[in-house]
Design a protein around this nucleic acid. Structure first.
Lengths: 106, 106
DNA sequence: TCGACTCATAAGTGTGTGCTTATGTGATGG
DNA sequence: CCATCACATAAGCACACACTTATGAGTCGA
């Protein structure tokens, strides 16, 4: 578990890795299933998943020869906490309770 | 104004640039004032500021030979929006109104 | 047991990043 | 004016990153 801010931001700075997270949101998936839709080789996918796992954004569940990956929600907490320190500077966006409640509901 | 997700995450992936933002939070500062406390040359600072400005996280106000920099709050909105898509997966962290209200108050 | 499968790791390569020193562009002040 | 200041830009360098092909380590089905 790295979960340092730098590790997290670096992991998310790559568009492919963000797309992987997006595709992985909600349901578990194996590395090969994830690979469909990406113009990427198998080692590249494996390396991206290693980076995401190192940042604590994804976790792995081993089952036989398959590796099931899923989003690790707690991994996003450092990012949330970092961003929260800048919320106070947002002008008309966050001093609005309704906006926050709407975000929570979805 | 770049303000693409990739540009923002890349800008924030550097610890020095995050420290610059932290130091810049709240009050405007010139590039030289910012440089104090950092073991960094003047061109390095200028380049970091250019990256932050390119990502839309910081804006520049020119006054004579001085360049005053400040945090650009709206620049954080894409990051917030991106993160919001993963809020629903946070287990016991965000489905708590008190937490949100406390974050808003500070 | 053996060939096919899933996934990770090793090694090499091109490109990007962050830093440096050197220089350029204006603004300021004596 | 002209030296100095604040800042940006250019050019070069070491290193990190994302990708590739090749190979290794286990697991499964026939």
């Amino acid at each position: 578990m790295g979960m340092s801010d730098t590790e997290i931001f670096k992991a998310l700075a790559d568009p492919t890795r963000r797309a992987i997270l997006e595709r992985l949101a909600g349901h578990e998936m194996t590395a090969t299933d994830l690979r469909e839709g990406f113009a990427i080789t198998q080692p590249a996918m494996s390396q991206h998943l290693a980076v995401l796992r190192g940042a604590g954004l994804v976790s792995e569940r081993r089952e036989g020869r398959y590796a099931h990956y899923r989003v690790e929600p707690d991994g996003f907490a450092p990012l949330h906490d970092w961003l929260a320190r800048y919320r106070q500077f947002w002008p008309s966006r966050i001093d609005n309770l309704k906006t926050l409640l709407k975000e929570m509901d979805q």
